[in-house]
Amino acid sequence: MITFGSLFASSWPKIFQILAVIVIFFGFYGIAFAAGARIKGKKQNSLAIALFLVPALILVMTGLGIPAIQTFLESFKNADSSQWVGLKNYSNAIHDPDIRLAFINTISWVVICPVIVTALGISLATMLNKMKREAFAKSLIFMPMAISFVGGSLIWNLMYAYQEPDRAQTGLVGQIMLWLHIDVKHLLLWSPWNNLFLMVVYIWGFTGFAMVILSAAIKGIPTEIEEAAQLDGATGIRLFRTITVPMVRTTIIVVLTTAMVGTLKLFDVIHTMTGGNFKTDVLSNRMFDENFVYLNYGRGSALAVLIFLGVIPITYYNIRSLRLERKH
C-alpha cells in the first residue's frame, strides 16, 4: 500500500521547484517592469527589446536554430559522424525502397490530414455557432485533444483490435464489419488502407483544435457584415462561402499550416501503432529509427533535412501572406 506520507516526501521537492520557477520568473520581470517604466526616450526601445525579445530568441536559437545547423552538417557525415561522406546519405535515402515508400506516405499524410481536419473544423465551427448546447458538443469533439497520442493510440488499438472471425471480436470496428457482413480484416495490416486508419487517429485528435480556433474566429466576424449580407439575401451555404470563409481566411491558413507542419513531424501515432511496419512508415518515424534504433546519425540527419526541405514551401507561402498582413 502507498501511504500519503511517502507520496508527500517524494513530491514536495518537485512542488517546491514549480513554485521556485514561478517566483523567479515573476520576481525578475516584476523588477524589470518597475525599473523600465521610468526610462524615457530612445533608450527604452533597446531596453524593451533586450528584455522582451532577447530571452526568447536565445532559447529558440539554443533549442532549434543551432541544433538545426549541426544536424545539417551531420547529414554529410557517416553513421557515427566520424567522417565526411558527401551526398552518400542522400543518395541512399533516394534509392532505398522503404524510405521511398515513407516519402510517399508522408506526402499523403501532409495532403490528406490537414485538409480534412480544416474542412471538418470549419464546418463544425459554423454549424455549432449559436446552436443549442454548443459548448457541450464542442467539449466532446475537443476531448481527444486532451488525450496524448500515446493514449489515443492505445484507445484506437482497442477499436481496431482483431480476432479471427470465428472468435468474439474485441475491437469495435471489427465487430461493426461483422454486423455489416464485411470480411473482418487486420485493419492495421490492410495496405494501403491502413495508412488511412492511422490518419483517423490523428484527425480524431486534431479536429478539436481546428474547430475551436476557427470557431473563435467566426465569432469575431462583425455582426454588421453578416447582417448586411443577410439583407442581400445570402443564407446557408452562400453565406458560408461568401462571408464566413473569406472573413476567417487568415485563421484557416493558420490551422492548415499548423496541421501540415504537425503531420510532417508526426511520429507518435506511427511509432506506437505499427512501428513503421506494414507499409505505413513515414519520414519522421524512419528518422527516429535511423537515429535511435539503427544508430545511423548521418542518414537520420539527412532525413531530417529532407523533412525540413518539405516545410520550406509551406513556410514560404505563409511568409508571403504574412508580409501582406504585416504591411498594415
Partner: peptide
C-alpha cells in the same frame, strides 16, 4: 521582419533533429 520570419521558419524544424545536439 527578418526575426519574425526566421522564428516562423523555425516552426518547421523537426523536433527530432535537435534532440541530440541539445
Amino acid at each position: 521582419d527578418h526575426v519574425f520570419y526566421g522564428l516562423f521558419a523555425l516552426q518547421g524544424v523537426p523536433l527530432q533533429l535537435s534532440l541530440l545536439p541539445l
